[in-house]
Design a protein around this nucleic acid. Structure first.
Length: 1016
RNA sequence: GCAGGGAUGGCGAAAUGGCAAACGCAGCUGGUUUAGAACCAGUACUCUGAGAGUUCGAAUCUCUCUCCCUGUACCA
């Protein structure tokens, strides 16, 4: 019987689907185990071999846990809202829902053929109204909550309203907007409904506010901080500018400390925790208020609030710096300095955020002409503006201590501002002194002689006494902008009465995304939903109705019809992914986000596997929502995933050719005219490419000793050299060329080698505009491409499609090979050639059970040798799975099968447990073997074999005998021999005497069961 | 700059204080066989990035240096 993997795999995939083998029950006597993958965004490109890596690992774990008797929840779904489908809709007019559905179909087909044990009955799609109904529901709960700092949790907004009407807000300790006014109960009760709503927005956990946002004109939307990389959009790399817009925001900053503290309670990778810690950016220090000096008494005295981590250096302040955007700048700048300051502000506004970040070396700034008073010395301090101070961090103003901060030092040096030294015995003439540990304060009045910690405490105490400062903890984490000016996202369950947002009652959800003609912003600059004609909320019928019925005044005056405009923004990508792990527990529940029974049973995710790129996006927001849901009593755990593993990237091996484009270079080397279409295109090797130098600061390449070979090669292919000494516009041009490295698809190479298949290449679409091609060949007449390991991506032509692998070697081979490549967390290059190793392992495994005539399995008793092989395999595989070391398990299986083959083992007592061991890794073959062993039920819940140490007990041990740590020979000795007897036996051995050559050993180390080491 | 991870045969790797390179790919030799392949048996190479220390013993622990990767960055 042949191992016909295609047939077997199809058979069992159909069986699992038909029998719902992996359906998880919400009621079970068994212990629960929840294994989750980060669900994919279904892109048009489909899966490449890198994508399933994490899914295979989690699937092995899930299957293993089923063998161990757990009720396993292992769901899968799609993060199906997103930009690519919408961009495609803008280009083609095809509804994103259609594109998305098609892509999901491809994904599902690809996932199914790898044989995952997903419970597909629980599939969710974030773009499905039945799903996003509950995303909208969570949004409403956030809107109806505020954060009480006294109880340190989110509470119902009604409790806040009650406090306001009885006591006002003076004693409310809440997380709220900075500009929240203080009011009494009488005042509150006297406010109009609109005024009350405005105030409440300053407390709600999701709120509408005018915020400075990151606007990306090319994408036509705002972006969250984590969606911007190096000042450009993460998706597409488009420029991002600062803009003030009315937006929904999430008050995630209320949870900054708890998000930080929670990291200590979860088993997540350290680098991931580190990046969340950095993102939250807690710094402890003090806020200090400086007042501006008024010269004539006519101007207003202004307060400048700064945050500092070094209040101990307060006597080192020699100037203050404000961000150019700081609101006080316009108010305090003196008439004499106005021109300079205005010019500077204009210049910095022109520079994009990216330029500012890229160029950190150039020091720039301007003096405002104004002075602030030092809180203690009362001396005037000049106030500057400078773009090294960021408007978005802290208060956008700093007290500059040039002797203790390098940026302040650089600024002071540049503008010739004094640098007072307040450190004892430290030279600050060359650079600032930032070491806290070695700090001893000097020249600082009451702080003199104090070390860092004491000085900080004292300074804060004195500032508090003055009423000009207090200890403060500052977080870098900003509230997250939650509005997107896009079509393909969750609509908000929000309508506007008199400009104030109103929530639609939960029973009327979902608010379904309307149809639009165009997916672009409207002519008046409104988001795409502004194109919808049926997008108004009728508060009488609780239905979405045509815009024509909208109350003309927009308010709720008498006699109006109660129809109001709906929100035009949609939610960001991370909305749907912040609650999906809980929704999987009870995905078809229409009455609630999940039933109490479901959440009480499943609790939280036991193992979450996914990429590290979600560290500061999805994983931070999801933790925030979970903590909120916990506060409001909906979930029992305030962290949603106990353990998380980041799988590494599988990289591809790109192939490069070095393309020579011939042309003419002007005499001054300022102009190059390409003649690539008239002359042959040439391809040289990486080595040749590296010999060529460019003319510094000019165009063209240098013909010198190193590059003359390349020039010779190029010239040899140019039929009429005279053509390359031509004149154009009165200028003379001579032969030269451009060198361009270009990637080629790896399928244009011969087999798995680096050799270009020239015939195939010339027939392909690549470089087909250049029909005449010449190659720099090696002595075997081959053209060698240069191979480089890079991220696997379509644009790099180095993707390997799992479909091809499955067709040729089968899903079990693919699964085994992905694991065999190396440790799960590490990034590793894909090399298809190596898959034959695991594939032939599966064939050998098959051959243990079958020969040409059918089953070989007997009821013969297992030999001691057989049992030893089996049990050491059980032990190792179990340990490996528990430690997520899947690569070493695959090797262990290979060794096991090699040994059993050599032992000619055919007994059922060995081969039956072996099938179970293999089953998590290669489930299709395992099911087939299991069936052929006579079982009628799936192998998936067969109990995992139990390791019995007794089979591994050895009667003798081959001791390595080393001399000064170097192994010289081996000696077979009884395993239970005592230390003394071993030493005696070893010393008596003739080889020992030979090694010692008459010397007396200083010491003999005997480690029973391990080693003997003779020193001397 | 800062933080984290890493460096072991030609390649992917294993060994986390005790026989370095298990297992697989590629290579070589032989067998069997072929349209192509597949299969079986056997086999070489290399000595843990560099240096120092701790230890009876170090790839493994400590320190210094070099290089690579990943993340992050004017965060006051």
């Amino acid at each position: 019987m042949q191992y016909n993997f295609n047939e077997i795999e199809k058979k069992w995939q159909d069986y699992w689907a038909k029998n719902q083998t992996f359906r998880a029950e919400n009621n079970s006597e068994k212990e629960k185990f929840y294994v989750l993958d980060m669900f994919p965004y279904p892109s048009g490109a489909g899966l490449h071999v890198g994508h399933p890596l994490g899914y295979i690992a989690s699937d092995i774990y899930a299957r293993y846990k089923r063998h161990k008797g757990f009720n396993v929840l292992h769901p899968q779904g799609y993060d199906s809202f997103g930009l690519p489908a919408e961009q495609y809709a803008i280009q083609t007019g095809q509804h994103p829902a259609i594109t998305t559905a098609e892509n999901i179909k491809t994904y599902r087909r690809q996932l199914d053929q790898i044989g995952f044990s997903f419970d597909w009955s629980r599939e969710v799609r974030t773009s499905d109204p039945k799903y996003y109904k509950w995303t909208q529901w969570v949004f409403i709960q956030l809107f109806n909550s505020w954060y009480n700092k006294d109880s340190d949790k989110a509470e119902d907004i009604e409790t806040l309203v009650a406090t306001f009407s009885s006591d006002g807000n003076a004693n409310v300790n809440a997380v709220c907007d900075e500009d929240t006014p203080e009011f009494s109960a009488v005042e509150w009760n006297g406010f109009s409904s609109k005024e009350q709503q405005e105030i409440l927005l300053k407390y709600r956990l999701t709120y509408l506010a005018d915020t400075e946002v990151n606007w990306c004109p090319a994408l036509g939307t705002v972006l969250a901080n984590d969606e911007i990389v190096n000042g450009v959009s993460e998706r597409g790399g488009h420029p991002v500018i600062r803009k003030k817009m009315t937006q929904w925001s999430m008050r995630i900053s209320a949870y900054a400390q708890r998000l930080l503290d929670g990291l200590n309670t979860i088993d997540w990778p350290q680098p991931l925790k580190d990046s969340q810690t950095n993102w939250i950016g807690r710094s402890q220090g003090a806020s200090v208020t400086f007042y501006t000096v008024t010269s004539s008494g006519v101007e207003n005295k202004h307060a400048i609030e700064v945050f500092t981590t070094r209040p101990d250096t307060i006597f080192g302040v020699s100037f203050m710096t404000l961000a150019p955007e700081h609101e006080l700048v316009a108010k305090i700048t003196t008439p004499e300095q106005k021109a300079e300051v205005d010019a500077y502000i204009e210049a910095t506004a022109k520079r994009s955020e990216r330029d500012r970040m890229a160029d950190v070396k150039t020091i720039s700034g301007a003096f405002t002409g104004a002075y602030a008073e030092h809180p203690f010395s009362k001396k005037p301090i000049p106030i500057w503006i400078g773009d090294y101070v960021l408007a978005g961090y802290g208060t956008g103003a700093v007290m500059s201590v040039p002797c203790g901060d390098q940026r302040d030092w650089d600024f002071a040096k540049h503008f010739d501002i004094p640098i007072p030294n307040i450190f004892e015995g430290v030279d600050i003439s060359e650079e600032a002194f930032a070491d806290k540990e070695k700090t001893v304060i000097a020249n600082s009045d009451f702080l003199d002689g104090l070390p860092y910690k004491k000085a900080v405490k004292t300074a804060i105490y004195e500032l508090e006494k003055l009423g000009q400062g207090k200890g403060k903890i500052n977080y870098r984490l900003r509230d997250a902008v939650f509005s997107r000016q896009r079509y393909w996202g969750e609509p908000f369950p929000v309508y506007y009465v008199d400009g104030m947002p109103q929530m639609i009652a939960a029973e009327h959800l979902p608010i379904v995304l309307p149809e639009v003609e165009k997916y672009l912003p409207t002519e008046t600059g409104e988001p795409p939903l502004g194109n919808a004609t049926v997008w108004a909320w009728d508060t009488k019928t609780n239905q979405i109705v045509s815009n024509e019925f909208i109350s003309p005044s927009g308010g709720d005056q008498e006699g109006e019809n109660g129809v109001y405009p709906l929100e035009l923004n949609t939610m960001p990508g991370w909305a749907g992914s912040s609650q999906y792990f809980n929704r999987y527990m009870d995905p078809h529940n229409d009455e609630a986000i999940f039933s109490k029974e479901a959440i009480d049973y499943w609790q939280d995710v036991d193992l979450y596997i996914g990429g590290s790129e979600h560290a500061t996006g999805h994983l931070l927001y999801a933790r925030f929502w979970q903590k909120f849901m916990f506060d409001r009593g909906y979930v029992p755990k305030d962290e949603f995933a106990k353990k998380l593993i980041n799988q590494g990237m599988i990289t591809g091996t790109s192939a490069f050719v070095y393309w020579v484009v011939p042309g003419g270079l002007s005499e001054d080397a300022e102009t190059f005219i390409g003649k690539g279409h008239l002359m042959p295109s040439m391809f040289i090797t990486k080595e040749a490419y590296e010999l060529v130098e460019y003319i510094p600061g000019k165009l063209g390449v240098l013909e010198n000793d190193k590059s003359k070979g390349v020039f010779k090669f190029v010239k040899s292919h140019i039929k009429n050299l005279d053509d390359f000494y031509f004149e154009e516009g009165g200028e003379k041009f001579s032969l030269n060329f451009k060198l361009l490295p270009r990637r080629l698809p790896t399928n244009l190479l011969k087999g798995v080698s680096d050799n270009l298949d020239i015939e195939k290449f010339e027939k392909s679409d690549f470089f087909k505009d250049y029909p005449d091609k010449k190659y720099l060949l090696n002595n075997k007449s081959e053209y060698l491409t240069h191979r480089e390991i890079e991220k696997m991506s379509k644009s790099k032509y180095n993707v390997v499609n799992p479909d091809d692998i499955v067709k040729e070697y089968g899903a079990d081979s693919l699964r085994l090979y992905e694991m065999f490549l190396g440790p799960l967390e590490q990034s590793k290059p894909w090399n298809t050639a190596g898959i034959t190793g695991v594939h032939s392992f599966l064939k050998k495994l098959w051959k243990l059970y079958f020969n040409e005539n059918g089953s070989k399995i007997t009821d013969a008793e297992a030999s001691a040798e057989n049992l030893k092989t089996l049990h050491k395999t059980i032990k190792k595989v179990e340990e490996d799975i528990e430690n997520f070391s899947f690569n070493t398990s695959v090797s262990t299986f290979m060794i096991c099968v090699n040994e059993l083959t050599a032992q000619k083992c055919t007994c059922k007592a060995i081969l039956e447990p072996l099938a179970i061991l293999v089953s998590p890794y290669a489930p299709h073959i395992a099911e087939e073997l299991w069936e052929k062993l006579g079982h009628s039920e799936s192998i998936s819940t067969a109990p995992f074999p139990t390791f019995e140490p007794k089979y591994l007990v050895e009667s003798s041990k081959e001791y390595p005998i080393s001399f000064n740590g170097k192994m010289r020979f081996k000696m077979e000795l009884p395993a239970d021999m005592s230390k003394e007897d071993i030493e005696a036996a070893v010393m008596a051995h003739e080889k020992t005497q030979q090694q010692l050559a008459g010397r007396t050993p200083k010491k003999v180390i005997v480690v029973p069961g391990k080693i003997v080491n003779i020193v001397g």
